[in-house]
Design a protein around this nucleic acid. Structure first.
Lengths: 144, 144
DNA sequence: GAATAGTTTATCAATTTTGTAAACTTACTT
DNA sequence: AAGTAAGTTTACAAAATTGATAAACTATTC
């Protein structure tokens, strides 16, 4: 799997929405401006995130985007899988055809292990974690 | 970082050379045939591997390729770094420009952790490991 | 010096990624 | 009900990357 800028944009967009979840809906324009993501590219990303049930929308005037689940229930893996997925381990199978050859099946095991490690890291980070980290950076705890 | 088929070809090529290291040099044609890698694509891969000191060559008739280091001293990370690198963690810095913004620097931390996890897996697997695994598959130990 | 095998360089086609545009739908407001 | 602000859908296109190929070149052996 690859983590393209689409996933990076997507993660920042969801984080942006999460950071404002108590105030109001965010419009695409606001997300685009605050996170410096091309607005017409952001369209595609938001649509995908909605389709996967990560964000929710309200149309019409005063509409916008909000989270569909609690930040603690959204992992970065969820976002990356939508935007750069599918993250299935079997993806490698199509890649290296002749896996009857033992050297091929052995090397395949390497890529499988790498993907698993990636996935584990991404599954271990929730949007809530990122919100907390961001708040800590913004107003750090200056306890001596 | 992404692991393209270039790295996959490269790993199989080095493994192929390692599996034959006691017998003789392997020509590009042999590697190409045995591992089903397009010969003219393999050229580029072998050149890169040589430049990085992973393999060594002898030119002229009866020439070919051999390992430049012991299989136990070549990790898959070495190979992937040559062919899909650079694997530097700072690569993300160019990616997400405005990292003065705290949400950006927070999300960057995610990708850094993913790359680190990937790298750790790749650094933990040597060509010697792959040779052993391949031999085990080829003539397994049938102890009841 | 002829044959073999690696080297270098340049190019090209296919794919993927990134980004844009325009017509369309929904829903609020007056 | 009309106007407007928002999200939706579809299609397309530019840019970058990847995968692959070819041809001229250099070194080495016999």
């Amino acid at each position: 799997m690859k983590i393209s800028s689409k996933s990076k944009y997507g993660t920042r967009a969801v984080l942006e929405i999460a950071l404002n979840q108590n105030s109001k809906l965010l419009t695409r324009k606001q997300i685009s401006r605050n996170q410096e993501i091309p607005s017409s590219y952001l369209v595609n990303i938001l649509i995908s995130l909605k389709a996967k049930g990560i964000i929710r929308t309200i149309r019409g005037p005063h509409g916008g985007y909000e989270l569909a689940r609690e930040p603690v229930d959204i992992t970065v893996f969820d976002i990356v899988e939508v935007l750069d997925g599918p993250f299935e381990l079997s993806a490698n199978l199509n890649d290296e055809k002749n896996f009857s050859k033992s050297s091929t099946s052995v090397s395949m095991g390497v890529w499988t292990r790498v993907e698993k490690a990636q996935g584990d890291v991404l599954k271990g980070i929730t949007i809530n974690d990122l919100v907390q980290e961001t708040r800590n950076l913004y107003s750090p705890d200056f306890s001596i």
